[in-house]
Design a protein around this nucleic acid. Structure first.
Length: 481
RNA sequence: UCCUCAGUAGCUCAGUUGGUUAGAGCACCUGACUGUUAAUCAGGGGGUCGUAGGUUCAAGUCCUACCUGGGGAGCCA
């Protein structure tokens, strides 16, 4: 009789021993001697392996030889209490089917640790390691939690376009989308490429943000959010940037900047708590990994607290809120400013540098910080202007170790003010007619923000390079897999 | 894009002021071991020293350019 396949996650907590079970998965290691072999089997359902015990006398010798690290097998056997230490239950194997072998001489994964840089070169196999298994299970849990959070609050998931003709936002360099022959594109009379001949009849690009379209949705559905891929063709080579990344962008009608900050703080705490409540095995593993990793670092480069404690701290603490202007005062009176330790001098009107943000979050407040009301001249055209004529209702959430995890604002809902700002910044108004019309017909105060999904995952997993929290990273000079 | 460090066996690394046949640990293969937990013990195979030039009697080692990766910065999420 065919046994129904059980997930290892469920077998490991099962009380029903002496029962016939089937498990399928990939071999992590095999140990043993001539009489008995111990196979650690993993199927991705949990970070933990189940031990399969093989009495070699009962099996074909060649078959046992094929069961090596990386091989895929199906095991029928008895779930029994383990005689050895280190696990509660194990499977006493009766029948084993080898689906696919993995030549030990060429299979690149070993039981001993690999560097993350090496594993990135074999991204097709790195899912099979403990670290990446944990990271991608957590990534899934966070995606699910985001939908749950918004659904429970009456937000609608809005699908904004990936291919966009709007190039007005200025969020970054864009990837062109075109079906024209790159060798011999059609030209206009003055010798320029004639995009009227292109697939969409105009220049199109991959989206840099779904915000403007999300605003349109919020002007009828009240609360919407987007959660999709976003593309930036910036030549950024850092552990915090990707050319293709996922972004969550809620947009809320009738929200002012304070409502916006409340929502951002509530959402981040909800997500961190969800991870603590649902991914504790994976988080514990990542915490140990991180501690091990940091042993080789000097004291001042190590984390202030272990991963799980850090996450709990986020859930328990109130985020510090202060205005840009107040932040500048704090920075000016800080020790590093007085001792001339900042590389970039602090002056009202500058865009804060990472060293300034890090000082505020990691040294001064030692908590997440929400900065608001930035100078108008360093922020985007759509942000609501304050009455002082100098600042706009922007807000950034800064996290320790990550920097800016959320950027958002109250939007300018007054037609004349928005229109004149668009003109001041030299954006062609004719391209923005649809955006401006929402301010003509039933405009309302509204707000929204963008959360970089991978930066959230970085924070929650404690990983340090953003290329290790997305399955197949897209970065300058790299689109392998 | 800028600054900086690195690239030596499948992996992680050592390799002295330039000097004989380039080393180690792990992995892998063979053998030993009746319950292992990164199993253990003995033996074995495995290298165009990132690529291309150059200096020198002699280059893994020095010089130049390029490629790739790490860390930092800018742009940002």
């Amino acid at each position: 009789m065919e046994l129904k396949r059980s997930f290892i996650k469920d077998l490991l907590i099962s009380e029903e021993t002496d029962k016939q079970v089937n498990a399928k998965g990939w071999v992590r290691t095999k140990r043993g001697n001539k009489q008995v072999a111990f196979v650690a089997l993993n199927d991705g359902s949990t970070i933990n392996n189940i031990q399969v015990v093989i009495d070699i006398a009962n099996f074909d010798e060649n078959q046992v030889k094929d069961i090596t690290t990386g091989a895929s097998i199906s095991v029928n056997g008895t779930l029994v209490k383990s005689m050895g230490q280190g696990q509660n239950v194990e499977i006493q194997a009766k029948e084993i089917l080898v689906y696919g072998t993995a030549n030990p001489e060429t299979y690149p994964l070993q039981k001993k640790g690999h560097t993350l840089e090496f594993l990135r070169e074999i991204a097709h196999l790195r899912f099979r390691t403990n670290t990446f298994g944990a990271v991608f299970r957590i990534r899934h849990a966070m995606a699910f939690a985001i939908h749950k959070f918004f659904n429970d609050k009456n937000f609608y998931y809005l699908h904004t376009p990936i291919v966009t003709g709007s190039d007005a936002e200025g969020a970054g360099e864009m990837f062109r989308v075109s079906t024209l022959d790159p060798e011999n594109p059609p030209k206009t009379e003055d010798g320029k490429i004639d995009y009227a001949e292109d697939f969409f009849g105009k220049e199109t690009n991959l989206t840099v943000s779904g915000q403007l379209e999300a605003e349109l949705g919020a002007m009828a559905l009240s609360n919407v959010y987007t959660f999709g891929p976003t593309f930036r063709a910036e030549n950024s080579n850092t552990p915090r940037h990707l050319a293709e990344f996922w972004m969550i962008e809620p947009e809320m009608a009738f929200y002012d900047i304070n409502d916006n900050m409340d929502l951002a703080e509530e959402m981040l705490k909800y997500l961190v708590k969800y991870a603590l409540d649902n991914c504790i095995d994976d988080l514990s593993f990542l915490e140990k990994r991180l501690l091990e990793d940091e042993k080789s670092k000097p004291q001042n480069e190590r984390s202030e607290m272990p991963l799980i404690e850090k996450l709990q701290f986020i859930v328990d603490s109130d985020f510090v809120r202060l205005s840009y202007t107040e932040a500048i005062d704090v920075l000016k009176n800080s020790k590093p400013a007085k001792k001339g330790k900042f590389q970039f001098p602090v002056e009202w009107g500058i865009d804060l540098q990472s060293e300034h943000e890090r000082y505020l979050v990691e040294k001064h407040y030692k908590k997440p910080v929400i900065l608001s009301d930035y100078p108008r001249d360093i922020k985007a055209f759509y942000m609501k202007q304050n009455d002082d004529g100098k600042t706009v209702r922007a807000m950034d959430v800064l996290f320790p170790g990550i920097g800016e995890i959320i950027g958002g604002s109250q939007r300018e809902e007054i037609y004349d003010k928005l229109s004149s700002r668009i003109n001041e910044m030299g954006i062609p108004e004719k391209d923005m007619w649809w955006y401006l019309e929402t301010r003509k017909f039933g405009t309302v105060p509204h707000s929204g923000f963008g959360l970089g999904f991978e930066r959230l995952i970085l924070f929650i997993t404690g990983m340090s390079n953003i290329r290790d929290v997305i399955p197949f990273p897209r970065t300058p000079k790299n689109a392998e897999f």
